[in-house]
Amino acid sequence: MALDNIRLEVMQLLEKKVDSFIDRFLIPVDKIWQPTDFLPDSQNEDTFFDEVKELRELAKELPYDFWVVLVGDTITEEALPTYESWLMDVEGINQQEGGNAWSRWTRYWSGEENRHGDVLNKYLYLSGRVNMIEVERTTQYLINDGFDIGTDRDPYKNFVYTSFQELATYISHNRVAKLAKEYSNKSLSKMCKIIAGDEMRHHNAYSEFVSSIFEVDPSQMMIAFSDMMKKKIIMPAHLLRESGQAVGSAFEDFSWSAQRIGVYTSQDYIDIMQRLIDRWDIDKIMDLTDEAERARDYLMKLPARMQRISERLVIPNDIFEFKWVQPAIAK
């Protein structure tokens, strides 16, 4: 039987559980928070301008690297059309003739994710601390340039990727929330904290998908997990660029900013890898093929190997000057 056919059969088998996953891990539209819950009320003329003024005053206290990271996180969230279109093409996710349960999950997940870029974008606009036209251009470039995360249409690899990436975005937004709180910006902190909560729910969902696949196709799931770790998880904004620059040219400097302020580091990458290994009980899975056993052996040794490499990493102190956030504006 062809590999793709096996995966398709597994996806069809698990499709029976997808509606229960939606009920467990997603929140109905009328009950979930919306961006306007965390922003000045533009319909209230008595309070709106005072609330905006307070927002702008608090924004002045935030340092340069913080703004770079917040802008980069916002742009990453705003590139949602790329992620949705990619997932809709995964084997077993059918959006034709009304779609199936998997496509319903993808649409509902996208609906929740869409609110993140929406609220952060409005905050940036109201803050007056960033060059919005450059932010908007970078966002459009990122959507235009697309991405290739090395998963092809393989659901196993895609669910490993989303399990990893949702946890990474949880860490990033949660750390930004803590930093904002340290600068007494409680409203921004609360906004980022609730976004982080969404990301953790989504991480739990995609991790559950992988756990379910391990139950029915353990060897191929193990090999898929190993393959993704060998390639390394590519961040969704890896092609980030500013206007007039080459594709991907801004990502490294954005990453250094995140590392300098401890929002997302190489240690976090290793910790997420170990957390997935533990969550999926990689050391306990039985009845593996010889190839899958070798894949398991690779996975179990990888965190320690990555740790040794990470310890040699030197983070540059020189701050790159982005068009999004010029130092004179951020001060």
Rank of each mutant, 00 (worst) to 15 (best):
A2C: 00
A2V: 01
D4C: 00
N5I: 00
I6V: 15
R7A: 01
K16H: 12
S20M: 13
I27D: 15
D30T: 12
D30M: 08
K31C: 11
P35H: 11
T36D: 15
P40S: 14
F49A: 15
K53E: 15
K53H: 12
L55D: 13
E57H: 06
E57P: 02
F66C: 01
V69H: 10
T74N: 10
E77A: 15
E77Q: 08
A79I: 03
Q96W: 09
G99K: 03
A101I: 03
W102N: 01
W102S: 04
S103V: 04
S110N: 07
E113R: 03
H116D: 10
G117K: 07
G128S: 11
R129H: 10
R129M: 15
V130W: 06
E134F: 07
Y141T: 03
D148Y: 08
D152C: 09
P155M: 02
K157E: 02
F164T: 00
Y170R: 01
I171W: 03
H173K: 05
A180S: 15
L188I: 02
I195T: 12
A196F: 02
E199D: 09
E199Y: 00
F209H: 10
V210P: 04
I213K: 07
D217G: 03
M222S: 07
I223R: 03
D227P: 04
M229S: 07
K230P: 10
I234K: 14
M235T: 08
Q245Y: 06
A246D: 15
G248V: 05
S255E: 05
S255M: 07
S255G: 08
W256N: 05
V263E: 11
D268T: 04
D268Y: 04
Y269C: 03
I272F: 02
M273Q: 11
Q274F: 00
D278A: 11
D278K: 08
W280R: 04
T289E: 13
E293H: 07
M306I: 06
Q307M: 09
R308F: 04
I309D: 13
I309S: 14
S310N: 13
S310G: 05
V314Q: 14
P316T: 07
D318K: 15
I319T: 14
F320V: 01
